[in-house]
Nucleic acid binder design. Structure first.
Length: 202
DNA sequence: AAGCGCGGCGCGA
DNA sequence: TCGCGCCGCGCTT
């Protein structure tokens, strides 16, 4: 198994994004997304990568390099305000998002399946997701989402608390920059959605 | 057994 | 109207 990682800077947020792909050595086409990870700064990125021992673009085949570039661009565009449905785009590019592997229990799988139905610009709540799968284990749902290895792609940021509070993001309720990031994503999507509606009215 | 990105309730500022 | 503590909830570690 080979890992390829790259990172982009989110200028408006002063954060780093680490994106990790992998593939079978002999496999020609199939590229698997392994994780997307937001780091607060350069130091955190280096530290994280040292632990994981990812290889940065070591001899990528041509086609995969293209794929990687393209997906980095997509994420960059999305983060800087593009109206982009990342899940669909990744699917189109034939990048596998290994949901079963990352969410092995039937509960966790159901949770993210119903979360994936929440579209760009929409929001939901932990309790709504629970209702959708017939569970009142609202805390358990947060428990699943906090370990989401694919933020942005699996849209955790669209899940708010039922009372309107923003709730947690990327594993934390208290970490300010994570909460700000969640807020930022919500703002981007909302303003884009409004823009789209305006255009549609004409 | 402990710990949760929650929700609902009740309380006291 | 908050913020907090408490309990119930059910899943993960």
């Amino acid at each position: 198994m080979k890992f390829i990682a790259s990172h982009i800077k989110v200028s408006s947020l002063n954060a780093k994004v680490l994106i990790v792909f992998k593939w079978q050595k002999e496999s020609q086409e199939k590229v698997i997304l392994d994780e997307i990870k937001f780091l607060e700064n350069e130091r955190m990125l280096v530290e994280y990568n040292n632990n994981k021992k990812y290889e940065f673009f070591e001899n990528p085949l041509e086609i995969k390099q293209e794929l990687i570039k393209k997906s980095l661009n997509l994420i960059e565009n999305y983060l800087s305000g593009g109206y982009i449905n990342l899940y669909d785009e990744f699917k189109k590019m034939n990048i596998e998002i290994p949901l079963r592997e990352k969410f092995p229990s039937s509960f966790s799988y159901k949770v993210i399946q119903s979360l994936l139905k929440i579209k760009y610009g929409e929001s939901t709540s932990y309790s709504y997701l629970g209702d959708a799968i017939g569970s009142r284990a609202y805390r358990a749902i947060g428990n699943i989402l906090r370990k989401n290895p694919f933020p942005l792609i699996i849209p955790c940021h669209r899940v708010l608390r039922k009372n309107g509070q923003i709730g947690g993001f990327m594993g934390s309720r208290k970490n300010l920059w994570k909460i700000e990031l969640k807020n930022h994503l919500i703002q981007i999507e909302q303003s884009n959605t409004k823009l789209k509606e305006k255009k549609g009215e004409r």
